[in-house]
Write a protein that binds this DNA or RNA. Structure first.
Lengths: 117, 117
DNA sequence: TAGACTATTGACATATTGCATATAGTGTAG
DNA sequence: CTACACTATATGCAATATGTCAATAGTCTA
């Protein structure tokens, strides 16, 4: 999960700085099921990536409500994201090969039904 | 990794019974880097899946060399594989969306070069 | 007889996750 | 004005998962 979550967060930060709660909210758009993903996991990864130097943060006291820790992507984050994307392409190809092989082997019964759902 | 390894093993067993070492050897064809994957990991997942009732095993004493534990897929393994494939399709879509978004955002410089590799 | 290859297993440390809980500011329903 | 819901972040702990290494053992070759 970490292999998908961290790149997703970096990708979001590419579009501009943001804070954890907002990023967490947006994750649904990246295919995550927020019902099964606790926000603490997101916060934890953000802190980890900050320690790695991929992002940095500062407090935003001007907004309403509790303070927000606002994250920005760093140069190291950019190159790291590029590496992770390489890995993700390989994963995509691997998974595609898996599902295609499965389809060929067990769902091989061709379904040319006209009444598709 | 488990999310890819277990379905891959079941898929291999779909084509016929086999033992751990052989399955481990074949994993390269499924996109795994066996240099970075210890065989003990494969054995562990096989034992786990046996405990779950997805596969069963018996010893093969007739072959040369050390004894082999030969695995066969079980009916429960078939339906489980179908479920996992559903998950994998979602993962494939999620990862595809990620890499496509990245390509659009940072590799946006269109490359229409005629001399493709 | 030492070393390489096949084959499986167990132990241990570390990494990752899930879940619960703590803290705190703001707005709203009653 | 009080209880509750929502925003926002952080921490602790138990349960799982993973990586790594070593142990055992049979066969074959140099």
């Amino acid at each position: 999960m970490r292999a998908f979550l961290r790149p997703s967060l970096l990708l979001m930060l590419l579009e501009g700085e943001s804070h954890g709660y907002h990023l967490y909210d947006q994750l649904a758009a990246y295919g995550f099921d927020c019902d099964r993903l606790d926000s603490s996991v997101v916060y934890r990864h953000l802190r980890d990536m900050e320690e790695m130097g991929l992002i940095d943060s500062h407090w935003d006291d001007d907004s309403m409500g509790p303070r927000r820790r606002v994250y920005r992507i760093q140069p190291a984050g950019l190159s790291c994201l590029a590496d992770w994307m390489e890995d993700l392409r390989e994963i995509r190809d691997q998974v595609s090969h898996l599902v295609d092989t499965y389809r060929r082997e067990v769902e091989g019964e061709v379904d040319l039904s006209i009444n598709e759902k």
